[in-house]
């Protein structure tokens, strides 16, 4: 006798109502995020169009067209962020190395918390500190630089009397982007393969040679993306620029004078309270340009990070 082949009883797989509601609500929530990003872009574009298409001379306070107005601002934004990164990148790498490879294991985590404390200070407090403490303190140093190292092109020109130059802004910005850059660098330094490090040490390398051979080559993409993330933060920082800088509508590489290029964000904060009509549209249009710049910078940074390993600066 042959046994009939065993078949499962035909039953429709039922999807529970609760499951369906719950899973679709999570999808809706996820899609809201996409919708918000799309909305940010659309609403900014919609409000910018009047300024972008305005005829020459119709924009309040601007003699030529919009692009001539925004040009120096874009330059100032990039220049301030670049200076900030020049200051903070070596320090961030040093601090990250100190926490990951030099400090005693037991205190390393506490030191990490202390650096994270910098991220907890609100930007308006950094602005107050920069304007009232750093600028007056550093002004004599600027005078010294100007007289003694004035042959260096960046330090030439008429030295400021208040210390409110783009270099001061860059220092404060550098301090502000330090926590996120340190966090990313630290994370990637800790991921360097332990066996490589131990092999290097076993071959008689000093600690620095070990870091040079095993850690830094591994961490290079991570360092690059940390720099990009710091750049993203520095580009969009508003209050520090608005409170510390003494701005002018110029394109100038000099870092010690009182004629400093303003940044997009700082300009919006300063002009906004008095703006009306087309002026508001103009400011929103500059904001749109800032959004596009930071979006591109962040997207590249995230692309590089994600290729390596899943982590972000948000946590």
């Amino acid at each position: 006798m042959t046994t009939p082949p065993f078949t499962l009883p035909k039953r429709k797989t039922t999807v529970r109502l609760g499951d369906r509601i719950f899973s679709s609500s999570t999808i809706v929530a996820g899609s809201i995020i996409l919708a918000v990003l799309a909305a940010v872009t659309l609403f900014l574009i919609a409000q910018s169009i009047p300024a972008l298409v305005a005829k020459q001379g119709t924009l309040p306070g601007i003699t030529t067209n919009f692009w001539d107005y925004v040009g120096p601002l874009v330059f100032g934004t990039l220049w301030a962020a670049l200076l900030a990164l020049l200051i903070s990148t070596p320090i961030a790498i040093g601090v990250a190395l100190f926490i990951s490879h030099y400090a005693p294991r037991r205190v390393a985590q506490v030191l990490g918390y202390i650096v994270d404390l910098l991220a907890a200070v609100p930007s308006v407090v950094f602005g107050l500190w920069g304007a009232k403490v750093l600028a007056p303190t550093i002004q004599p140093f600027y005078e010294w630089l100007n007289t003694n190292v004035g042959w260096f092109p960046l330090f030439s020109g008429d030295v400021t009397g208040t210390g409110r130059t783009i270099l001061t802004v860059a220092i404060v910005l550098g301090v502000m982007v330090l926590p996120i850059m340190t966090a990313v660098c630290r994370e990637i330094f800790l991921q360097a393969p332990r066996l490589h490090e131990e092999a290097a040490l076993a071959l008689g390398a000093t600690r620095w040679e070990m870091i040079q051979m095993a850690v830094l080559p591994f961490a290079r993409p991570g360092i690059i993306s940390a720099v990009m993330l710091g750049l993203g933060r520095a580009l969009g920082e508003t209050l520090v620029v608005a409170m510390v800088l003494s701005p002018a509508a110029v394109v100038s590489f000099l870092v010690l004078t009182s004629q400093n290029p303003n940044t997009i964000a700082g300009n919006i904060a300063l002009q906004y309270p008095e703006a009306f009509g087309l002026g508001v549209n103009t400011l929103i249009a500059t904001g749109l340009i800032l959004f596009v710049i930071t979006f591109i910078v962040n997207a590249i940074a995230r692309y590089v990070v994600n290729r390596r390993k899943a982590f972000s600066g948000a946590n």
């Binding site: 995020i33 930071t294 979006f295 997207a299 994600n306």
Partner: peptide, 13 residues
Amino acid sequence: FLVDVMTGIPSIV
């Protein structure tokens, strides 16, 4: 990806 990018939106924007 977009959530990661969103963490970098300037607050003024």
